[in-house]
Design a protein around this nucleic acid. Structure first.
Lengths: 129, 129
DNA sequence: AATGCTTACGTATTGCGTAATGATT
DNA sequence: AATCATTACGCAATACGTAAGCATT
């Protein structure tokens, strides 16, 4: 089982037709049909019942649909989140201020920063020049 | 990004050495090294810092590790769950009883069934023969 | 010298497209 | 006849192994 197969499965489950799902996935219909049966074989379960005008989800298919959408959503958000960390949109930002500034801190700017990047922790360190 | 890459990444993150992780995954070390950089390139983030004696997770790597283990765990349990449904270990089991039985139901057996298959719903229907 | 990561390259596996076939209305 | 799925097969993309190179201790 892999993420591509889950995407394919979700498309078929939502379109209820392998042909339409294939169009949505920008592939042709036979490989999609093949991948669906491969997934069924691997899981040891029929996911769809084949009807003359399309396919219907089985009980097992309905369970997989719920799980698959969760997994795919998690995967996508994980990628975004990790990329954000790399861009410095998450983590700890340590800011040094010098004593001679008299303790003046640009509070409005820091509030704006905290609002735009809610997952960044701000730490202030006071010292000499 | 695919599940195989996430498995590879998790192995490296846990072993802290690409060489050791490759052994655990039963592949050789160069392709694993290659896949890790491919994942980093795709996410646009360094996941490890390369050290003379192995690798260390970056902040982004630590975030991905948490998400990856979740996703892989969910995937595995989804597969088991779906297979279970296919085996009839989940769903609704409708049992018909005939009026002439005087309303006698084998309660102990049904309790045992409900205990062994907690996700099976039992429904009793009374009718004639 | 030893350990561990990276780059380069050839082969084997896998994914997808095209073509032909099957089944139902 | 039309619609939608499956099976068969060839090509293209991808994953992995082997070989060689680089860096650090």
């Amino acid at each position: 089982m892999n993420l591509r197969q889950l995407e394919y499965f979700v498309a078929v489950a939502e379109e209820r037709k392998i042909t339409t799902a294939a169009k949505r996935l920008n592939i042709t219909q036979p490989p999609l049909s093949y991948e669906v049966s491969a997934l069924e074989k691997e899981l040891g379960v029929k996911l769809f019942v084949r009807r003359p005008r399309g396919v219907d989800l089985t009980d097992a298919g309905r369970v997989l649909y719920a799980r698959a959408t969760t997994i795919l959503g998690l995967t996508e958000s994980a990628a975004r989140e990790v990329a954000d960390v790399g861009l410095g949109r998450e983590g700890t930002l340590a800011i040094g201020i010098i004593s001679s500034s008299g303790g003046q801190v640009p509070n409005d700017r820091m509030r704006a920063l905290a609002k735009d990047y809610p997952r960044v922790s701000l730490v202030l360190n006071e010292g000499n020049t």
